[in-house]
Nucleic acid binder design. Structure first.
Length: 484
DNA sequence: ATGTTC
């Protein structure tokens, strides 16, 4: 059957009045649960044209899955498991852990900082700042001894704070306060340990970035006030993960699970969805390594935060303390974690996999720190470096996605497709004209980041608002971008 | 995403 015909038969607005912002893919073939797709008609058309629909159906057929499998607006085909998708599994129902449902960059995420200083103060020093960051934040690794690395893997962001990178309050807004529980510092792989020893405090390449910007517009004054956000103030956003260590843990995990699939005789629709029962020894080993790699990423973003603070302070010739550059949020988007959810009136402990998807806890959630209990968990939604990003707050409807949001604008064009663009698109000169300072070790990376390679954030926001997943609090505008 | 093929 042609894929378009399959979609015509299986995707339809729900009878209970679900709007065009959420589409249901009913169970068919081997699916154990339905899948929900959040998006406008254009998103639906993209999903129809590619592999995403098949991949969603494959994920929805895995053992112990608790529906619905959710596809967020920027969803795209991934390695077996779509990027921008969420799937939850119940250990008691034979649920599994799926390394492919986390992604190769374990606990890759985006952190947002906001400063007490105004953008007008920074603008004259911007070029100097970006040159400084290019030298100091892109690749300036800390060398860790084996015991030091073990401590990083066990303690995450707090290790970095205890070693001079930041202040204790930095970890307050972080999930698990920056220390994911259950970490096994042995990782189960010597190679992963070797790779981790020399990369802490490095940004990474590809889509990883540091962006210096400012609050362009407040969209929800009461929420912005509660977060001490005001128009004009300097922001810093950084996107980085667990580097070679996380990659190795993930690759080791896929290999481990491919053996587990045979051992437990799991029927797989796609080899890349290799998995093991959450109750198995294989899962126990992988989950320990996963938490350790997540902690490495938390520590990495903390070290990078320290580097950014030092560079901004140097640029303005003020002490670091005077910047008030505080952590507004730190949003992992490649992770799996055990969480309590209520599904069809039943309280369940679920292992929620978020691949290219953020977690956003709604107001009142018991896992929120006291300071955010009444407001909900702020989530930054990065756009592209020529336009803007958004700060969001979860809305009550977010329970429908297991408290998940998209992780950014998402690529519309592949990185290769963004190369060799016609001269009618004089990117990146447009950025210079707009006063945005771009730095990268590799010029072709900048070319890959042309705004037309990304989805419109506005269209994503419309879907999030219509589905009552989140509301916008502030719009952030870039001033300078360092691309890995 | 990734010492982009140990």
């Amino acid at each position: 059957m042609a894929r378009a015909e399959l979609l015509m038969e299986t995707v339809a607005p729900e009878p209970d009045g679900t709007s065009a912002s959420c589409w249901s893919i009913p169970k068919h073939g081997g699916m154990r649960v339905s899948a929900h797709l959040y998006g406008d008609r254009a998103t639906l058309a993209e999903v129809t044209a590619g592999e995403t629909l098949t991949q969603l159906a494959a994920v929805a057929s895995l053992p112990g899955v608790v529906g619905p499998v959710c596809a967020l607006p920027q969803v795209q085909p991934g390695c077996g498991f779509p990027a921008g998708a969420v799937a939850a599994f119940a250990a008691r129902a034979g649920g599994v852990i799926v390394p492919g449902g986390i992604g190769y960059d374990i606990n890759c995420g985006v952190r947002l900082l906001s400063a007490a200083v105004d953008a007008s103060e920074l603008r004259p020093r911007l070029a100097t700042l970006m040159d400084d960051l290019l030298r100091g934040a892109l690749y300036a690794p800390m060398r860790l001894s084996a015991p030091e690395l073990a401590s990083v893997l066990g303690h995450g962001a707090s290790w970095a704070v205890a070693h001079g990178c930041g202040i204790p309050a930095d970890v307050d807004p972080l999930d698990w306060r920056g220390t994911m529980p259950g970490a096994d510092p042995r990782l189960g792989s010597e190679r992963a340990l070797v790779r981790g020893g020399g990369q802490l405090g490095t940004l990474g390449s590809g889509s990883h970035f540091v962006e210096i910007g400012y609050v362009e517009r407040i969209l929800d004054p009461a929420a912005a006030d509660a977060l001490s956000l005001r128009a004009g103030q300097v922001t810093a956003m950084l996107h980085s993960g667990s580097r070679g260590l996380g990659y190795q843990v993930s690759a080791d995990g896929v290999e481990l699970m491919q053996r587990a699939v045979e051992r437990y005789r799991i029927q797989l629709p796609d080899r890349q969805l290799a998995c093991a029962p959450l109750a198995s020894d294989e899962a126990r080993r992988f989950l320990g390594a996963l938490a350790a790699a997540a902690n490495y990423a938390f520590a990495n973003r903390q070290v990078l935060t320290h580097r950014v603070r030092e560079a901004v302070a140097r640029a303005l010739a003020v002490p670091v303390d005077a910047l008030g550059l505080s952590v507004l949020c730190d949003v992992p988007h490649n992770l799996a974690a055990f969480e309590n959810h209520v599904v069809e009136g039943r309280a369940l402990s679920l292992c929620v996999h978020r691949r290219g998807a953020a977690r956003g806890l709604p107001a009142g959630h018991p896992d929120l720190p006291n300071a955010l209990r009444g407001l909900g968990q702020p989530v930054v939604l990065p756009g592209d470096m020529g336009r803007y990003s958004l700060l969001l707050l979860p809305e009550p409807g977010i329970a429908a996605t297991f408290n998940s949001l998209p992780h950014g604008a998402g690529r519309r064009l592949g990185r290769a497709a963004a190369h060799g663009r016609p001269s009618s698109h004089p990117w990146p000169h447009e950025l210079a004209d707009a006063g945005i300072e771009v730095r990268s070790a590799a010029p072709e990376i900048v070319e890959e980041c042309t705004p037309d390679a990304y989805h419109e954030l506005e269209a994503i926001l419309e879907v999030l608002s219509a589905a009552r997943l989140a509301r916008p609090v502030a719009r952030l505008r870039p001033l300078g971008v360092l691309r890995g």
